[in-house]
Design a binder for these strands. Structure first.
Lengths: 354, 354
DNA sequence: TGTTAGCACTCTTTTGTTTTGAGTGCTAAC
DNA sequence: GTTAGCACTCAAAACAAAAGAGTGCTAACA
């Protein structure tokens, strides 16, 4: 079902204008602003065709036209002008990014802020998923005889530490033993391969003090599991409230509740991210009630071969896809390069003989 | 300006009903539901008096009455029935609290969720302010020659750790030196007393490697400063959107933007918390534009003598003060006792000879 | 003197009606 | 194939009328 070039142009004009003005667009308007060489009557004929073909819909018999999901889809896939992040924007983004280099999660949040800020929509991301990464080593550091710090280090040198408070004192030898057994049993495994069973083996190996170590091992186990759970980050939660499609509080509430529902968001991101490729989901193409009237642009960022995360932008169907897509592409690209060479980042670098 | 007992009763009836129904309350309604022994005409006279005295206002000439800020104030200070957290609620709260004991910040978030859930309003808290607490010690742990873990331990055994990635390798002696100097210079000081000057002294003491350590020291300094900054936690962000006072999106948006504005929230909490005492701020009694039409119940929780945080609930003037106050009192009380004896908490406890 | 029935009056809310205007589809002419 | 012209449609705005909740005031009552 190839559209004539003129139909394509007119469809594009409708989508562009609807994205800009959020009002059904009529024949006269298109004639005036996009095709002065044509009369409104001609455009009217074309619009009627496009409607019949399913690219446009009317809100009532005598209204202007609004893009259907198919209309948006066609627009995104072949009509829209690829928006190039402009030089100034690149400069601004870079400046923002370079100024604020801290830890990975802080950095991801910062990137999200930029995404939300530059698109004026709501940006979402998961923290990186370490479950496919391997555990390099486990440290247990005694702060004093009542306080131990548990430290997990992954192959990507990501560190997770949690304090453990004890009821009765322990001594150095005990901790050294524990540490050595933990490392021989767990170091080198990928996080998702570490199960209760490993801990049973560990408990056995530690022999005598069976009861004593149960709690501490439980804690180690749950901390490892926490590295598997990825957090949800949000930015620009309230950005959409200014848009006409959210002038109804009930709708606004539904949206806000959706984005604060970690479980649903996790699922949505998971179901709609497509490996390395940026993906655009329009309306409820996916038959997900929650996404009714909402569109999603999702992409993946990469910390290492096995450690990746998902980030995206959510907004009304009527969003500036071009801008959103190019921003996300640019930002995820930058997380990838930055993260992969993080050890060389200028802020934390130290050289003993500097 | 003492009110007659009858006037007090009528004022209480108005506030109670307005809190419940969110509609201006009229004389007949009060007569029927609260004072069947009086006629609506009598009540009308009393209402007119209360209005003249400033306790009530009308929304238009022939409307029912709504409490003024003075009306709410009087209600909160002397009229309302103190709500007692019921046995079931106590049980529920306790169960929720006891089930989910993890780290302090996780715990505070959990308490906030309970506060927001039981009041159906928005709950806010700051993380504990450590600036008045003392730094017990500083650890630098080598994970490998390129990765160091910085660990700060406070007198309350709160631990903050941050990984440092190095560009070129360092050796054990260097780290040992650094650690020893850091500890002799900084351990024992309260966090807010640690300044750039201390770090100048440290750099001097380390002598030769002046340039080399600059970055790492900078990082230690900024991490210490981060312990001074307290985070803002939120729960129940969207709870208010169901209320009639937020049926206007613009208002809802303003509110949501306010609670996501960390700087403003920090300031509001700071300006309105009153040491140990629970404080109720009604409307913009404090002349803060942002709090227009909003009320705030704030209290303090205590981790140790010098380490405290602020938590509160924010909602429309028309809130169930009684319930909110008693919930907050109960919850902050519980953080206090729990935090102060945290080392004995059952979940993480371990005993070598258990 | 405090209370209350009664009534006129006010103002919002609801409901219904009319007008306006943007936009369409169709027809006939170019 | 394009376009001018016109009748028609429908939402939104503007206006009008009616309903209803509530007040204040007056005059009578206990």
């Amino acid at each position: 079902m190839e559209l004539s070039e003129r139909k394509q142009k007119i469809l594009k004009a409708v989508v562009d204008d609807y994205i800009t003005f959020a009002e059904p667009v009529g024949s006269t308007h298109i004639a005036k602003n996009h095709h002065p060489e044509l009369s409104s009557a001609t455009i009217r004929n074309e619009l009627a065709d496009l409607e019949e073909l399913g690219y446009l819909v009317k809100t009532h018999t005598s209204s202007g036209r609004v893009p259907s999901e198919l209309g948006y889809r066609t627009y995104v896939d072949s009509l829209m002008k690829k928006y190039m992040v402009s030089m100034e924007e690149v400069a601004r983004l870079k400046a923002e990014m370079e100024h604020k280099i801290k830890e990975l999660d802080y950095y991801i949040k910062e990137v999200l802020n930029i995404a939300a800020g530059s698109t004026n929509l709501t940006a979402i991301a998961t923290s990186p998923d370490f479950s496919g990464g391997t555990l390099k080593k486990i440290e247990l550091m005694m702060l004093d005889s009542f306080n131990i710090l548990l430290i997990l280090v992954t192959e990507t040198d990501t560190v997770k530490s949690r304090p453990i408070k004890l009821k009765s004192p322990v001594d150095f030898d005990f901790i050294a033993d524990l540490k050595s057994v933990l490392n021989t049993q767990l170091a080198g495994l990928t996080l998702d391969k570490i199960t209760k069973q490993n801990f049973e083996v560990i408990t056995e190996q530690l022999g005598g003090n069976y009861e004593a170590v149960a709690n501490i091992l439980e804690f180690v186990y749950s901390t490892i599991n926490e590295m598997n759970e990825n957090e949800i980050y949000l930015s620009g939660e309230t950005n959409l409230l200014g848009l006409p499609e959210f002038k109804d509080v009930a709708k606004a509430k539904k949206f806000l509740e959706l984005i604060h529902d970690e479980k649903k968001i996790r699922e949505i991101l998971k179901n709609n991210s497509k490996g390395n490729v940026l993906n655009v989901v329009i309306g409820n193409e996916q038959d997900n009630e929650d996404l009714d009237q909402l569109s999603l642009v999702v992409t993946t960022y990469k910390i290492s071969e096995n450690v990746t995360g998902v980030m995206g932008v959510i907004g009304p169907n009527r969003m500036d896809y071009s801008k959103v897509i190019s921003s996300l592409e640019y930002l995820s690209e930058n997380i990838n390069t930055l993260a992969l060479k993080a050890p060389e980042n200028d802020n934390n670098e130290v050289n003993k003989n500097g």
